[in-house]
């Protein structure tokens, strides 16, 4: 297992390197003006534009090595954009954003909000997805099953930005109620307001992932319920709740755990939109703003950062999978 984890971590490092180069290049070759042009504003002059490019380091070569049209064909660049960025990435400061703020400081300030949102979302996902998946499987082809499956299809089909808007509009229209929208409330400052602020967006994000979990739980449960050992358990006269809870659920939940782990990456993407709608100053909010103004430093850093989270989560899920199912052996 240790060897497996080390190998996966090494693969992850290679993957992150490829990701870093890809996002670095994509940002620069994508059509559209560069961030210096945006920062230069409406009263932009060529002089001012060049000065901003210099400040942002955009006049440096992209990579440590570049090709030339004459011998020796290759040029080594000690000062280059990619290496400067990587150095900042490893130095812990993560560089500065478009507004001159250290990216690390911004992340430090914003990460708690996003982590809290994701934790509540996972709770919503599990609390909705697994119980309803079990109900749907146990009462297969009953009105409850149809109802749950319809709900799951709606959950998968409804875009989260639209659902998020509804979650704000309906309470304000019916009861003049809105969650706190003007600031991000810390749990330690005001637990009640914090939950009022975070539970609705977590519900929005969780509705989509719970739908997937519910469908997977259902199919997995149906598969397990057809197994001989379930029939044996029933023939022993065990209560149905024991059969389902102690025997069927434990085995059917293994693939579900994998899926929940993988969904966290998707949830990070969803958080970009939901944080915007609910005005939560989290990492997603920051990421979206950086994308709009083409803030290379932030977009690059956050992409690699999210990539690292996904790689680590995948590894954690695989390890957890082996722990949950002793038959699985990694070599």
């Amino acid at each position: 297992m240790r060897q497996y984890i080390i190998r996966r971590l090494l693969q992850g490092a290679v993957l992150l390197f490829v990701l870093s180069v890809t996002v670095f290049l994509l940002l620069r070759i994508a059509p559209g003006a560069d961030p210096a042009r945006i920062k230069c504003g409406l009263d932009c002059t060529e002089e001012k534009y060049q000065s901003i490019r210099e400040d942002l380091g955009l006049n440096d070569p992209y990579f440590p090595i570049s090709f030339t049209s004459s011998p020796p064909w290759i040029e080594f660049n000690s000062d280059n954009q990619y290496w400067n960025w990587i150095q900042e990435l490893f130095s812990g400061s993560l560089g500065t954003d478009w507004n001159g703020e250290p990216v690390a400081t911004e992340l430090q300030n914003r990460l708690p909000a996003t982590v809290e949102l994701l934790v509540i979302t996972i709770m919503v996902t599990v609390l909705l997805g697994i119980p309803f998946g079990i109900i749907s499987a146990v009462y297969r082809n009953s009105p409850s099953d149809y109802g749950v499956r319809l709900g799951a299809i709606l959950g998968l089909a409804i875009p989260n930005f639209w659902l998020a808007t509804l979650v704000i509009l309906i309470p304000i229209s019916l009861w003049d109620y809105a969650p706190p929208l003007t600031e991000t409330v810390s749990f330690f400052d005001s637990p009640w307001d914090n939950l009022r602020q975070f539970v609705p967006p977590a519900f929005v994000l969780g509705a989509v992932s719970a739908a997937g979990v519910m469908r997977l739980t259902r199919s997995s449960m149906l598969e397990v319920m057809r197994q001989d050992y379930i029939r044996t358990a029933r023939s022993k006269g065990l209560a149905e709740t024991t059969v389902i809870g102690a025997h069927a659920l434990k085995n059917s939940v293994i693939p579900v755990v994998t899926v929940i782990g993988l969904q966290i990456a998707g949830l990070l993407g969803g958080a970009v939109i939901v944080e915007q709608v609910f005005n939560i100053q989290g990492v997603g909010f920051y990421f979206l703003g950086a994308l709009v103004r083409k803030d290379y430093q932030v977009v690059q850093t956050l992409t690699v950062y999210i990539g690292a989270v996904v790689i680590i989560l995948n590894l954690a899920v695989d390890v957890l999978y082996a722990w949950l199912d002793p038959r699985i052996r990694y070599s």
Binding site: T165, I168, L169, I172, A178, L181, T182, E183, V277, N279
Partner: peptide, 15 residues
């Protein structure tokens, strides 16, 4: 305060 989207801004006003 920063509220980018119209619907939450409207909700924040009503509230």
């Amino acid at each position: 305060v920063r509220i980018s989207d119209r619907q939450p801004r409207r909700a924040a006003f009503i509230d």
